[in-house]
Design a protein around this nucleic acid. Structure first.
Lengths: 336, 336
DNA sequence: CTAAATCACTTAATCGTTTTCGTATTTTTA
DNA sequence: TAAAAATACGAAAACGATTAAGTGATTTAG
């Protein structure tokens, strides 16, 4: 690796001058600066990030905490898409990203915060985790710039998918198609679930619908098997719903299969809709009606806000940002 | 952040002693070592990775090059799973991972190799890229430890999914179910495609089958639309195949939809099989018969080999490693 | 009992940058 | 024209760790 030392020898000036020239400081002659930059380029110089980080306490490295209990969230369609977008935006601004979430078998296990300090991360984005995990809380309460996704803390910027509007739109759409007997196989325990659930109740209420208790079922997120079982229960009711909403697209797929196995047709016999808008949703037969979350904007916004928090902490406003999703009209909800 | 300096003050010894104690050097008293470690723990000490990297030229950071032309490979099921497994294994050994692939809009665009040097990466794993990209070639020809996935270079360790055996198993299975008229909508241009294709020809030949030219179609990887079109062409033949193999599960899904739209049933009217074994393959109706690639072993092996290459370069044997997949028997191939 | 070896620790240089302060030279101002 | 100000650069310390070489004290060997 060619260092500033090498350039300084070649140019016959001190390393200090090289540093200043390369970093566009003002106390440097125009011609020497140009010359130094030219030589640096010729010699294939790139700064040593470790040395720079050591001196400046800035790594241009962002941490990503995308931990599922089981896997890393990488294999999780929704978060993979958010992360992808986050990554693209971060890289445009010269930041690299490093995974913060680690399995417990790691040598010298550090907490997330310790790990962040160890690597000198400039900031961290958190998603898809147990937000009550003490290690996550430690991170939230630290001095480190943090942006959270789909979970709100009062002292942190949160990028929130607009689950309230999404669910309202979906219910309204289903209503507009003539459905009145709407069931909802919803998720469990998360803030996301709660918003959607509240929005479901509020919207149906506003529309003057009374949803019987037996139409409401709870399953774990992305649990196709459970979703299938609950679907069967709904279909077995003496007054079954005409439309079933699911916690997510995977659950919807689980329900879909059960419905087909019962020789029923979607949407002729029963209508369904999912949530998330994962890639395969529009590859299913029939194409699934769902709310597509705007993962691209979410990731991009998360990166922008985090970098803003790092680079201009004073002028960055700490408040939640809500990103709307869009209704994707498939063929899985029929018009009555 | 608490540094060695802080510990040295507290313990009344020099920083050198702290360093040696913490790194288990021999020329240190047993009791002082224990004491220092205890104090270090109490004070919440963690090394500063930048400082250490600067001095030792080791970052314990691995680069990941998973670049698609369009997106980052994160949203690519197969590679996301390999990466996930890679990550888990790397982290167990104390390594972090950083993305190397970056979009062209990056400030101060560096080549992959330059980026690796800049970050001082200890090694790089490459997958899912255009292996003829000059930047990738530069990386391959460099001094840096490199492991490739699903592509073979003569001077590098490659982790190869056993496409030859996989395709042989699949063809054999289909044959065993009584199929003789087997079509193959294969992929285009990659080494992976070539192995599968060669294996397809070889196996059918060994089984005494002659596959008419019109049964062989080419589509881009994961292109559901094209796969659908080719499927229609196959079904329109006056002597149509009884079974269609696809380049991958997504393509199979694309074909599946076309078949259903034509009011044909799988597998009664036509059998199909995919390749890859992505998560949704067994959620489809009917469950898709496919070859599930062992992404877990691939990622794990890639990490192990890369780390071995880094830590004991002399004794690490550079030769390709082949990982077998397994046939997942779904309901999409009928027995004739 | 003395010389050599071992032990336990310190000193100081080093990795590649950044940055403060100082200084010599030139330019501007009164 | 002399003093003040601006310009362009260099010297050196610092960031936090590692490590070769050195040192004094203790132990071992002959």
């Amino acid at each position: 690796m060619v260092s500033m030392k090498d350039i300084s020898v070649r140019c016959g000036v001190s390393v200090a001058t090289i540093s200043k020239a390369l970093n566009d400081h003002t106390d440097i002659g125009e011609d020497t600066r140009l010359h130094i930059k030219k030589v640096a380029k010729e010699m294939g110089y790139f700064p040593n990030s470790s040395a720079r980080a050591l001196k400046t306490n800035r790594t241009f490295n962002l941490g990503v905490l995308f931990a599922d209990e089981s896997n890393s969230g990488l294999t999780h369609d929704y978060f993979a898409n958010v992360l992808d977008s986050f990554k693209v935006t971060a890289e445009e601004q010269g930041y690299d990203i490093t995974f913060l979430n680690c399995n417990k078998k790691r040598k010298n296990k550090m907490s997330y915060l310790e790990h962040s300090m160890y690597r000198g991360l400039d900031g961290v984005v958190i998603a898809c985790v147990d937000f009550y995990d003490p290690e996550v809380v430690e991170l939230i309460e630290s001095k480190l710039p943090v942006v959270t996704i789909d979970h709100l803390f009062n002292n942190r910027i949160a990028i929130m998918s607009d689950n309230v509007k999404g669910m309202r739109d979906l219910v309204q759409y289903v209503y507009d198609q003539g459905h009145r007997k709407i069931a909802y196989i919803h998720g469990a325990d998360s803030a996301v679930t709660k918003s959607r659930l509240a929005s479901f109740y509020k919207t149906t209420e506003e529309l003057g619908l009374t949803i019987p208790e037996e139409y409401m079922k709870e399953v774990a997120y992305r649990d196709t098997v459970q979703a299938g079982i609950k679907t069967e229960e709904l279909l077995a009711l003496k007054n079954p719903p005409t439309c079933i909403l699911y916690a997510d697209d995977f659950s919807a797929l689980g329900g879909m299969n059960v419905i087909k196995l019962k020789e029923l047709h979607i949407p002729e016999d029963v209508s369904i809709a999912g949530y998330d808008g994962i890639n395969i949703a529009n590859l299913l037969e029939p194409k699934l009606t769902t709310i597509k979350q705007d993962t691209k904007t979410m990731g991009k916004t998360a990166a922008e806000k985090l970098i803003s928090l790092i680079e201009k902490p004073k002028s960055t406003i700490v408040q939640p940002i809500t990103i709307e999703g869009t209704l994707v009209e498939g063929k899985s909800v029929r018009s009555i």
